[in-house]
Simulated scan of single mutants.
Amino acid sequence: MDTQDANKWEEGEDTRISSANSESQSYAKLVWRRLRKSVPGMLGLMLVVSLLTVSLFAPFFAPLNPKAPNVGFQPPDKISWYVPDEGWRLFPVSFPIVESDELDLVTYQPLTGPDYTNPRQLALFVKGWEFKLFGITWDRHFIGTTDGSPLHILGTDKLGRDILSRGIIGSRISLAIALSSIALITVIGTLVGITSGYVGGRFDMWFQRFVEVVLAFPQLPLYLALATLIPVTAPSGLFLTFVVLVIVGLGWAQLSREVRSKTLALRQVDYVRAAMAVGASDRRIITRHILPNVMSHVIVAITLGIPTIVLLESFLGFLGFAVKPPLMSWGLMLQDAGTFSVIGSYPWILSPVGFVLLTVFAFNALGDGLRDAIDPY
């Protein structure tokens, strides 16, 4: 390469660099650009979107009526692409689990296995039980059998109700409690934390003593004590509202403490001091300078706080203090797995644990990805 070609190449490179630098990107675009490079973050985002979609259209994705009883515990159907004596299928088939005439030599219980003589073809968008979605009556479901026979992908509970359908419908209650609780916790904790850190002085000192008192309470015994205050005969809506208020009443203090520490640091930066010097109102300083800078921490706190509330609701529901029948939630479904004998004989009854683990992993992965993408350093 001669000198003239080298100069042209350098000029071309400078032109490319200057044109790239001249394209301004917003903060949201920079965050999205960083998040796309995070494999766990994108995986968590896709799982969260899928969970919210399934929860929103839960009756469509539930193959069976979650309240329809049957004969009791039934193992999950075997799903396969291969049919004996027939060969491979392009779409999977389901084999129901039936009892044989042979007995187990240890337990003397009838042996069970798939009925290969009765394959049932699976299909998408099949007809099933009727439900109402957004005021419209539907009878189509995402997956099912072509002959309309029951499909139990995860088996049934002690009353013969389909576990997969109940888990999909129960996601509405579990996620609704988590999302509504975290929304109130975020609003209260952010406003209180910014106000306390910005005002400072004696108000901040005394208010932080109150926050410390709230944080000093042992949360789990207090949850159980407060949950027992509402009568068992109370309406389901009132009971859920009380559960959300209890979670919010004990959960806002930690977020407010974190937001306060951020506000104390931001109050000393040059652009906030300049705004104070030119006579900007406190409302403008908080909404235009402080709040946007603490929102990155708040967003990460939201994604990491939702799994905590999901786990808490599952635990309280397992103890019978969160959701009451006929409502459905993941914690309430786990009540059937309260004894070792049930778990040993019917291990598929633990399937709701998978819903909880998937939700916790999805939001934690998304929170980790957002934390790295939002961090300006």
Results as ranks from 00 to 15, higher is better:
V49K: 02
R257G: 11
L179M: 07
W129T: 03
N118M: 06
G279R: 10
G305F: 01
W129Y: 15
F321Y: 13
S80Y: 03
G170F: 01
K8T: 12
G87Y: 03
I173T: 15
D157C: 09
N118A: 09
T190E: 01
G200T: 12
V248Q: 02
D270C: 03
K262P: 01
M333A: 14
L311C: 02
R33K: 15
T308C: 00
F363K: 05
S80A: 12
Y108L: 13
D336N: 09
M42R: 04
V83Y: 01
G135S: 05
G148K: 08
I306H: 01
L250V: 04
P66I: 14
T107F: 00
P92V: 13
L370V: 10
M295R: 13
S55L: 09
R16M: 13
L154W: 11
S171Y: 00
R33F: 06
A176R: 02
S180L: 11
A234L: 09
G367N: 08
L215A: 03
A362F: 05
D372R: 00
S50W: 10
S196M: 14
D2Y: 02
V300A: 08
L179A: 05
Y198K: 11
G148Y: 10
S149N: 12
N70C: 01
S165T: 10
G331V: 11
I343K: 03
Q4V: 15
K158E: 12
S22N: 12
L47R: 01
I185H: 00
P235V: 08
E86K: 08
D85G: 05
I302V: 15
P69H: 04
G354H: 03
S351K: 03
R34Y: 04
L164G: 09
S180V: 11
Q74G: 04
P150L: 11
S236N: 10
R260N: 13
F61L: 10
T145F: 11
G344P: 02
V243Y: 00
G369F: 10
P150A: 13
I306F: 00
V199C: 07
V31R: 03
T145E: 06
V98H: 02
A178Q: 03
V294F: 08
W81Y: 14
Q335D: 06
K127G: 10
G44D: 04
A62R: 03
S100K: 05
M328V: 15
D115I: 05
F361D: 01
D282M: 10
I173M: 12
W206V: 14
W348Q: 06
Q4M: 13
T195G: 15
D147V: 07
G249L: 07
P110E: 03
F363I: 08
F203D: 05
R166P: 05
V211P: 00
G249H: 07
S236I: 12
A123Y: 04
A20Y: 08
A227I: 04
G197I: 12
H289N: 11
V31T: 14
A178S: 13
T186V: 14
T359M: 07
L151C: 09
P110Y: 06
V243D: 02
V187R: 02
G320F: 07
